[in-house]
Computed example of a mutant assay.
Amino acid sequence: MQSLARTFIGSLGVVAIFATTGPNAAADPLDTESFTELRQLYKQIIDAENAHDVKAVAPYVWDSPSTLFVAKTSDPSQGNWAGFWGKDVVLAHFGALYKGTFHMAPDYTRERIVGLTKDVAETYVPLQISVSYAGQNPAPKPFLMIVEWIKTLQGWRMATDIALPVPPAPPKHP
């Protein structure tokens, strides 16, 4: 009987180890409603940006000096790309982008939303961006967009927006 008890307890230990290290080990802290809301918010902010409507974008942006947008600069002293900090600075940069060609075409079929905590989430979406800001050729170019969201008393807000340009593939060597 003692051997059977040890086998049972040992089996429970193996099950417990698998449950904490298996593919669903860390259950996502977001509920289904949050996933649905974040998916809708991301699409709404993209639509507002494609309409070049800073006022429509503003409510989606976290009202904090820690809000971050990483993007191309027009000022050589800032380098080619830089971080723009704070809601007002981010919105001003959006406004500058919208003065010329600016259009984002996300691949929503590849969108991923991950809950980091119940109040912090991340959206990842590959997309094509056409932009003429700071002398860029407005032909569509591939980017990876990473948006960090924070849940405030007013609802989910975009805290960080990073659009990483995807470099061209290296040439193939024979």
Rank of each mutant, 00 (worst) to 15 (best):
S3H: 11
I9Y: 00
G13R: 01
V15H: 05
V15E: 07
F18V: 06
A19Y: 12
T20D: 15
T21F: 08
G22A: 04
N24K: 03
A25I: 01
A25Y: 06
A25C: 04
D28K: 05
E33T: 15
T36E: 14
E37L: 04
E37Y: 03
L41T: 05
K43P: 01
Q44A: 08
I46C: 00
D53E: 03
V54I: 13
V54H: 08
W62P: 00
S64E: 09
P65E: 14
P65W: 11
L68K: 12
D75C: 02
G79T: 12
G79S: 12
A82K: 05
G83P: 00
A92D: 15
A92R: 03
H93R: 08
H93V: 04
T101E: 08
A105V: 04
D107G: 02
E111K: 05
I113G: 06
I113W: 13
I113H: 10
D119F: 01
V120Y: 08
V125H: 09
Q128K: 13
S130F: 11
S130K: 11
S130Q: 12
S132D: 07
Y133I: 01
A134R: 02
G135I: 07
P142C: 06
L144Q: 13
V147N: 13
E148R: 14
K151T: 01
Q154N: 13
R157P: 09
T160S: 06
L164Y: 15
P167Q: 08
P170T: 00
